[in-house]
């Protein structure tokens, strides 16, 4: 198998006079965080296998400004947004897919008001579409009958009402999807949103990710499925704090699919 990832950049394609169908917005976590990079690669493998025409911005990509905005720094957010929009509009980008719900939310909802109008999809929506179009066929195989619980990212679920795309994918893997006490509209946050990822939590009697992990553990899953790099970090840490990391894996939906496809 050719393990070489095909990851064209917008600049390369532009130089060759080509325009990809969709921009893959990698995001800061997907670019720099060791765990999240694996998710990025898994998603690229699927894109490659499905023959999707895509490109990344590479070094021309910059933070969407989401954490700055949620921290209250509207100024920095808009600086980031305007810069990114200039780059994306320069390339005539129409469609964007991203594996990060925070990037997804910001690009989809907050960029239009600043001049950036794109058709933005979360990777779970994009993958569902690939399955519908027959570009990838999911055969459970390795996940058949496995107990998987899915953690709703706030910025995908409540913020944007995407609850079913990720669940459909898990079901298509023939896995046994079990729901936590708080799920979908009432899903409990992992504790990372609103710029919490980048600071110490306030004084309290527990960390949010531990509370959420306890809810997951109640369901005795083999896998906790996530759809956000930050949730992934929080849940991984939560599982570690319960010393369960050998028996329970925290895996992004893109990784589930890539593994099921033997990619």
């Amino acid at each position: 198998m050719g393990n070489e990832l095909k990851v064209p950049t917008m600049a390369e394609l532009f130089a060759a006079g080509q325009q990809p169908e969709v921009l893959f917005w990698v995001g800061c976590a997907g670019s720099f965080d060791d765990r999240a990079k694996k998710i990025t690669k898994a998603f690229v493998k699927i894109l490659n296998k499905a023959g999707v025409s895509f490109a990344v911005l590479g070094t021309e990509e910059s933070c969407t400004g989401d954490p700055a905005k949620r921290a209250g720094n509207e100024f920095l957010f808009q600086m980031q947004a305007v810069t990114n929009i200039e780059v994306m509009n320069g390339y005539g980008i129409k469609k964007v897919v991203t594996a990060c719900p925070h990037c997804f939310n910001t690009l989809k909802n907050e960029y239009p008001g600043l001049g950036g109008n794109y058709d933005v999809m979360h990777h779970t929506q994009f993958l569902t579409k690939l399955v519908e179009e027959g570009k990838i066929t999911l055969e459970g195989g390795s996940y058949k009958g496995k107990r998987i619980t899915y953690h709703d990212p706030c910025y995908l679920g409540r913020a944007n009402n995407v609850y079913e795309a990720p669940r459909d994918l898990i079901r298509k893997l023939d896995a046994e999807l079990v729901e936590m006490k708080s799920c979908k509209q009432r899903g409990l946050c992992c504790g990372a949103g609103g710029a919490q990822m980048f600071k110490e939590p306030e004084k309290g009697d527990k960390d949010v990710n531990v509370e959420r992990t306890e809810q997951a553990l109640e369901k005795k899953p083999e896998i906790i499925a996530t759809a956000c790099p930050f949730c992934n970090t929080m849940m991984t840490d939560g599982v570690k704090s319960k010393e369960k990391e050998t028996s329970i894996a925290v895996v992004d939906i893109a990784e589930l699919i890539a593994t099921a496809e033997n990619l």
Binding site: S31, F32, T40, T59, S62, C63, M197
Partner: peptide, 13 residues
């Protein structure tokens, strides 16, 4: 990026 990484390294993955 919210972490101290160089923008030029964004595609290193």
């Amino acid at each position: 990026a919210p972490w101290p990484f160089n923008q030029m390294d964004r595609l290193n993955w």
